[in-house]
Design a protein around this nucleic acid. Sequence first.
DNA 1: CTACCTGCAAACTTTTTGCAGTCAA
DNA 2: TTGACTGCAAAAAGTTTGCAGGTAG
Lengths: 137, 137
Amino acid sequence: MLLTTEQITKIMSNQGLRITDQRKTLAKLFAESSGYLTPKDVYEYMGKHYSGLSFDTVYRNLRVMQQLGVLEQVVFEDGVKFKVHCAEPHHHHHMICLQCEKTYPITFCPMPLTDVPDEFEVVKHKFEVFGYCKDCR
Amino acid sequence: MLLTTEQITKIMSNQGLRITDQRKTLAKLFAESSGYLTPKDVYEYMGKHYSGLSFDTVYRNLRVMQQLGVLEQVVFEDGVKFKVHCAEPHHHHHMICLQCEKTYPITFCPMPLTDVPDEFEVVKHKFEVFGYCKDCR
DNA sequence: CTACCTGCAAACTTTTTGCAGTCAA
DNA sequence: TTGACTGCAAAAAGTTTGCAGGTAG
Protein backbone atom coordinates (compact mmCIF):
# COMPACT_ATOMS: atom_id res chain seq x y z
CA MET A 1 0.00 0.00 0.00
CA LEU A 2 2.96 2.35 0.46
CA LEU A 3 6.07 2.51 -1.69
CA THR A 4 8.94 0.27 -0.55
CA THR A 5 12.57 1.27 0.02
CA GLU A 6 13.54 -0.38 -3.27
CA GLN A 7 10.77 1.29 -5.23
CA ILE A 8 11.82 4.65 -3.87
CA THR A 9 15.52 4.28 -4.69
CA LYS A 10 14.58 2.88 -8.11
CA ILE A 11 12.51 5.93 -8.93
CA MET A 12 15.30 8.19 -7.79
CA SER A 13 18.06 6.49 -9.75
CA ASN A 14 15.85 6.31 -12.83
CA GLN A 15 15.70 10.08 -12.69
CA GLY A 16 19.47 10.30 -12.69
CA LEU A 17 19.83 11.03 -8.99
CA ARG A 18 22.81 9.57 -7.13
CA ILE A 19 21.89 7.01 -4.53
CA THR A 20 24.05 8.02 -1.61
CA ASP A 21 24.13 6.20 1.65
CA GLN A 22 22.17 9.00 3.20
CA ARG A 23 19.43 8.80 0.60
CA LYS A 24 19.18 5.05 1.09
CA THR A 25 18.59 5.59 4.78
CA LEU A 26 16.08 8.30 3.99
CA ALA A 27 14.21 5.97 1.65
CA LYS A 28 14.18 3.27 4.32
CA LEU A 29 12.96 5.69 6.97
CA PHE A 30 10.01 6.81 4.90
CA ALA A 31 9.17 3.36 3.58
CA GLU A 32 8.92 2.08 7.14
CA SER A 33 7.04 5.04 8.63
CA SER A 34 3.33 4.89 8.19
CA GLY A 35 2.81 8.37 9.62
CA TYR A 36 3.85 11.89 8.73
CA LEU A 37 7.33 13.20 9.52
CA THR A 38 8.42 16.79 9.99
CA PRO A 39 11.76 17.97 8.60
CA LYS A 40 12.88 18.06 12.22
CA ASP A 41 11.84 14.42 12.79
CA VAL A 42 13.85 13.45 9.74
CA TYR A 43 16.84 15.50 10.82
CA GLU A 44 16.84 13.95 14.27
CA TYR A 45 16.51 10.41 12.99
CA MET A 46 19.15 10.86 10.33
CA GLY A 47 21.44 12.64 12.78
CA LYS A 48 21.72 9.45 14.80
CA HIS A 49 23.31 7.75 11.80
CA TYR A 50 25.33 10.59 10.31
CA SER A 51 27.27 12.87 12.59
CA GLY A 52 27.69 16.32 11.13
CA LEU A 53 24.48 16.02 9.14
CA SER A 54 23.13 19.39 8.16
CA PHE A 55 19.57 20.60 8.08
CA ASP A 56 19.87 22.06 4.61
CA THR A 57 20.70 18.68 3.11
CA VAL A 58 17.62 17.22 4.73
CA TYR A 59 15.55 20.01 3.24
CA ARG A 60 17.14 19.58 -0.15
CA ASN A 61 16.48 15.85 -0.21
CA LEU A 62 12.92 16.22 1.01
CA ARG A 63 12.23 18.72 -1.71
CA VAL A 64 13.83 16.59 -4.42
CA MET A 65 11.90 13.52 -3.32
CA GLN A 66 8.71 15.49 -3.24
CA GLN A 67 9.25 16.80 -6.76
CA LEU A 68 9.80 13.25 -7.99
CA GLY A 69 6.47 12.28 -6.48
CA VAL A 70 8.10 9.91 -4.01
CA LEU A 71 7.01 11.98 -1.04
CA GLU A 72 3.81 13.82 -0.40
CA GLN A 73 3.95 17.15 1.40
CA VAL A 74 1.06 18.12 3.62
CA VAL A 75 0.60 21.35 5.54
CA PHE A 76 -0.85 20.81 8.99
CA GLU A 77 -1.75 23.53 11.47
CA ASP A 78 1.50 22.92 13.30
CA GLY A 79 3.71 22.85 10.24
CA VAL A 80 4.80 21.05 7.12
CA LYS A 81 5.06 17.26 7.13
CA PHE A 82 6.05 14.54 4.68
CA LYS A 83 5.06 10.97 4.03
CA VAL A 84 5.70 8.43 1.27
CA HIS A 85 3.29 8.53 -1.59
CA CYS A 86 0.60 5.85 -1.48
CA ALA A 87 1.23 2.97 -3.86
CA GLU A 88 -2.57 2.60 -4.05
CA PRO A 89 -3.37 3.91 -7.50
CA HIS A 90 -7.08 4.64 -7.05
CA HIS A 91 -8.40 7.99 -5.90
CA HIS A 92 -9.04 7.86 -2.18
CA HIS A 93 -9.10 9.92 1.00
CA HIS A 94 -7.69 9.43 4.47
CA MET A 95 -8.52 9.13 8.12
CA ILE A 96 -5.61 10.60 10.06
CA CYS A 97 -4.83 9.78 13.67
CA LEU A 98 -4.24 12.93 15.71
CA GLN A 99 -1.89 11.04 18.02
CA CYS A 100 0.37 8.81 15.91
CA GLU A 101 -0.52 10.47 12.60
CA LYS A 102 -0.88 7.16 10.80
CA THR A 103 -3.29 7.26 7.89
CA TYR A 104 -6.05 4.88 6.89
CA PRO A 105 -7.69 4.92 3.47
CA ILE A 106 -11.28 5.92 2.84
CA THR A 107 -12.53 4.71 -0.52
CA PHE A 108 -15.67 6.83 -0.43
CA CYS A 109 -15.37 10.12 -2.31
CA PRO A 110 -18.01 12.76 -1.59
CA MET A 111 -17.27 14.77 -4.71
CA PRO A 112 -19.76 13.10 -7.09
CA LEU A 113 -22.50 13.69 -4.52
CA THR A 114 -21.68 17.33 -4.05
CA ASP A 115 -23.91 19.81 -5.75
CA VAL A 116 -21.64 22.39 -7.35
CA PRO A 117 -23.14 25.27 -9.35
CA ASP A 118 -22.27 25.29 -13.06
CA GLU A 119 -20.41 28.58 -12.74
CA PHE A 120 -17.88 27.09 -10.36
CA GLU A 121 -15.10 25.18 -12.10
CA VAL A 122 -13.81 22.51 -9.75
CA VAL A 123 -10.08 21.86 -9.83
CA LYS A 124 -9.43 19.75 -6.78
CA HIS A 125 -10.87 18.82 -3.43
CA LYS A 126 -9.81 17.72 0.02
CA PHE A 127 -11.65 15.38 2.35
CA GLU A 128 -9.95 14.33 5.55
CA VAL A 129 -11.23 12.74 8.73
CA PHE A 130 -9.27 13.31 11.94
CA GLY A 131 -9.51 11.35 15.16
CA TYR A 132 -7.87 8.57 17.13
CA CYS A 133 -7.06 5.13 15.78
CA LYS A 134 -7.64 1.99 17.78
CA ASP A 135 -4.09 1.96 19.18
CA CYS A 136 -4.20 5.56 20.36
CA ARG A 137 -7.65 6.17 21.79
CA MET B 1 -23.60 35.72 6.09
CA LEU B 2 -20.34 37.11 7.43
CA LEU B 3 -19.92 39.12 10.61
CA THR B 4 -20.24 42.89 10.20
CA THR B 5 -17.85 45.57 11.41
CA GLU B 6 -20.20 46.40 14.28
CA GLN B 7 -20.64 42.79 15.33
CA ILE B 8 -16.89 42.35 15.39
CA THR B 9 -16.15 45.41 17.51
CA LYS B 10 -19.08 44.50 19.76
CA ILE B 11 -17.65 41.06 20.44
CA MET B 12 -14.25 42.55 21.13
CA SER B 13 -15.44 45.24 23.54
CA ASN B 14 -17.69 42.73 25.31
CA GLN B 15 -14.56 40.78 26.08
CA GLY B 16 -12.97 43.82 27.67
CA LEU B 17 -10.71 44.64 24.73
CA ARG B 18 -10.05 48.29 23.96
CA ILE B 19 -11.44 49.43 20.64
CA THR B 20 -8.60 51.43 19.18
CA ASP B 21 -8.76 53.20 15.90
CA GLN B 22 -6.52 50.56 14.45
CA ARG B 23 -8.78 47.75 15.56
CA LYS B 24 -11.80 49.51 14.09
CA THR B 25 -10.05 49.64 10.74
CA LEU B 26 -9.05 46.01 11.11
CA ALA B 27 -12.65 45.03 11.82
CA LYS B 28 -13.80 46.98 8.78
CA LEU B 29 -11.16 45.41 6.58
CA PHE B 30 -12.18 41.90 7.50
CA ALA B 31 -15.91 42.57 7.45
CA GLU B 32 -15.59 43.85 3.89
CA SER B 33 -13.22 41.19 2.57
CA SER B 34 -14.91 38.05 1.44
CA GLY B 35 -11.64 36.26 0.84
CA TYR B 36 -8.67 35.19 2.91
CA LEU B 37 -5.96 37.64 3.93
CA THR B 38 -2.37 36.89 4.86
CA PRO B 39 -0.71 38.75 7.74
CA LYS B 40 1.28 40.52 5.05
CA ASP B 41 -1.89 41.60 3.20
CA VAL B 42 -3.22 43.01 6.45
CA TYR B 43 0.05 44.76 7.24
CA GLU B 44 0.18 46.36 3.82
CA TYR B 45 -3.43 47.52 3.90
CA MET B 46 -3.16 48.87 7.43
CA GLY B 47 0.18 50.48 6.67
CA LYS B 48 -1.54 52.78 4.18
CA HIS B 49 -3.59 54.23 7.02
CA TYR B 50 -1.11 54.16 9.88
CA SER B 51 2.46 55.19 9.24
CA GLY B 52 4.87 53.50 11.57
CA LEU B 53 2.62 50.49 11.95
CA SER B 54 4.53 47.45 13.11
CA PHE B 55 4.19 43.88 12.04
CA ASP B 56 4.08 42.54 15.55
CA THR B 57 0.95 44.53 16.36
CA VAL B 58 -0.75 43.07 13.32
CA TYR B 59 0.18 39.59 14.51
CA ARG B 60 -0.97 40.32 18.04
CA ASN B 61 -4.33 41.59 16.87
CA LEU B 62 -4.85 38.73 14.45
CA ARG B 63 -4.14 36.26 17.20
CA VAL B 64 -6.43 37.99 19.70
CA MET B 65 -9.25 38.15 17.16
CA GLN B 66 -8.75 34.53 16.31
CA GLN B 67 -8.90 33.50 19.94
CA LEU B 68 -12.16 35.40 20.35
CA GLY B 69 -13.60 33.47 17.45
CA VAL B 70 -13.95 36.59 15.32
CA LEU B 71 -11.41 35.39 12.80
CA GLU B 72 -10.80 31.97 11.38
CA GLN B 73 -7.25 30.89 10.70
CA VAL B 74 -6.61 28.53 7.81
CA VAL B 75 -3.31 27.03 6.73
CA PHE B 76 -2.88 26.94 2.97
CA GLU B 77 0.05 25.46 1.10
CA ASP B 78 1.50 28.91 0.66
CA GLY B 79 1.03 30.03 4.23
CA VAL B 80 -1.35 31.08 6.98
CA LYS B 81 -4.41 33.16 6.12
CA PHE B 82 -7.30 34.74 8.00
CA LYS B 83 -10.91 35.50 7.28
CA VAL B 84 -13.93 36.59 9.34
CA HIS B 85 -15.88 33.81 10.90
CA CYS B 86 -19.08 32.90 9.09
CA ALA B 87 -22.22 34.29 10.73
CA GLU B 88 -24.00 31.22 9.32
CA PRO B 89 -24.59 29.07 12.40
CA HIS B 90 -25.16 25.68 10.72
CA HIS B 91 -22.38 23.23 10.00
CA HIS B 92 -21.24 23.66 6.44
CA HIS B 93 -18.25 23.38 4.13
CA HIS B 94 -16.77 25.65 1.49
CA MET B 95 -15.86 25.98 -2.12
CA ILE B 96 -12.78 28.19 -2.33
CA CYS B 97 -11.73 30.11 -5.41
CA LEU B 98 -8.04 29.59 -6.18
CA GLN B 99 -7.84 33.02 -7.77
CA CYS B 100 -9.72 35.49 -5.56
CA GLU B 101 -9.99 33.15 -2.57
CA LYS B 102 -13.60 34.01 -1.94
CA THR B 103 -15.58 31.23 -0.30
CA TYR B 104 -19.00 29.84 -1.09
CA PRO B 105 -20.95 27.60 1.26
CA ILE B 106 -21.70 23.95 0.65
CA THR B 107 -24.52 22.67 2.81
CA PHE B 108 -23.86 19.03 1.99
CA CYS B 109 -21.75 17.24 4.58
CA PRO B 110 -20.21 13.90 3.55
CA MET B 111 -19.49 12.79 7.09
CA PRO B 112 -22.77 10.93 7.79
CA LEU B 113 -22.27 8.96 4.57
CA THR B 114 -18.72 7.99 5.37
CA ASP B 115 -18.14 4.49 6.56
CA VAL B 116 -15.78 4.75 9.52
CA PRO B 117 -14.70 1.60 11.39
CA ASP B 118 -15.83 1.41 15.01
CA GLU B 119 -12.26 1.45 16.29
CA PHE B 120 -11.62 4.88 14.85
CA GLU B 121 -12.90 7.70 17.02
CA VAL B 122 -13.73 10.67 14.82
CA VAL B 123 -12.94 14.11 16.24
CA LYS B 124 -13.26 16.41 13.26
CA HIS B 125 -13.22 16.48 9.51
CA LYS B 126 -12.38 18.74 6.63
CA PHE B 127 -14.09 18.93 3.25
CA GLU B 128 -13.05 21.64 0.85
CA VAL B 129 -13.59 22.12 -2.86
CA PHE B 130 -11.11 24.26 -4.77
CA GLY B 131 -11.55 25.79 -8.19
CA TYR B 132 -12.48 28.99 -9.97
CA CYS B 133 -15.60 31.03 -9.31
CA LYS B 134 -17.64 32.55 -12.10
CA ASP B 135 -15.79 35.89 -11.92
CA CYS B 136 -12.35 34.33 -12.12
CA ARG B 137 -12.52 31.48 -14.59
C1' DC C 1 36.58 12.24 -14.70
C1' DT C 2 32.69 14.98 -13.99
C1' DA C 3 28.43 16.26 -12.49
C1' DC C 4 25.98 15.72 -8.55
C1' DC C 5 25.84 15.69 -3.37
C1' DT C 6 27.17 17.37 1.14
C1' DG C 7 28.43 20.41 5.13
C1' DC C 8 29.31 24.99 6.48
C1' DA C 9 28.06 29.61 6.92
C1' DA C 10 25.07 33.05 6.14
C1' DA C 11 20.91 35.10 4.49
C1' DC C 12 15.95 35.30 4.46
C1' DT C 13 11.07 34.84 5.92
C1' DT C 14 7.74 34.40 9.25
C1' DT C 15 6.42 34.83 13.96
C1' DT C 16 7.21 35.83 18.96
C1' DT C 17 8.82 38.37 23.12
C1' DG C 18 10.49 42.18 26.41
C1' DC C 19 10.32 46.82 27.25
C1' DA C 20 8.84 51.57 27.78
C1' DG C 21 5.87 55.09 26.34
C1' DT C 22 0.86 56.07 24.95
C1' DC C 23 -4.02 55.92 25.13
C1' DA C 24 -9.03 54.14 25.73
C1' DA C 25 -12.41 53.66 29.20
C1' DT D 1 -5.92 56.78 36.75
C1' DT D 2 -4.76 52.33 35.16
C1' DG D 3 -4.37 48.40 32.67
C1' DA D 4 -4.40 47.47 27.93
C1' DC D 5 -2.31 48.70 23.36
C1' DT D 6 1.47 50.09 20.40
C1' DG D 7 6.11 50.66 18.20
C1' DC D 8 10.80 49.45 18.53
C1' DA D 9 14.39 46.22 18.84
C1' DA D 10 15.81 41.81 19.13
C1' DA D 11 15.31 36.95 19.34
C1' DA D 12 13.48 32.61 17.76
C1' DA D 13 12.01 29.23 14.41
C1' DG D 14 11.79 27.48 9.85
C1' DT D 15 13.72 27.43 5.24
C1' DT D 16 16.81 28.69 1.34
C1' DT D 17 21.23 29.82 -1.08
C1' DG D 18 26.34 30.20 -2.43
C1' DC D 19 30.44 28.05 -2.09
C1' DA D 20 34.19 24.64 -1.89
C1' DG D 21 35.45 20.09 -1.12
C1' DG D 22 33.94 15.10 -1.56
C1' DT D 23 31.95 11.10 -4.04
C1' DA D 24 28.79 8.07 -7.05
C1' DG D 25 28.57 6.38 -11.52
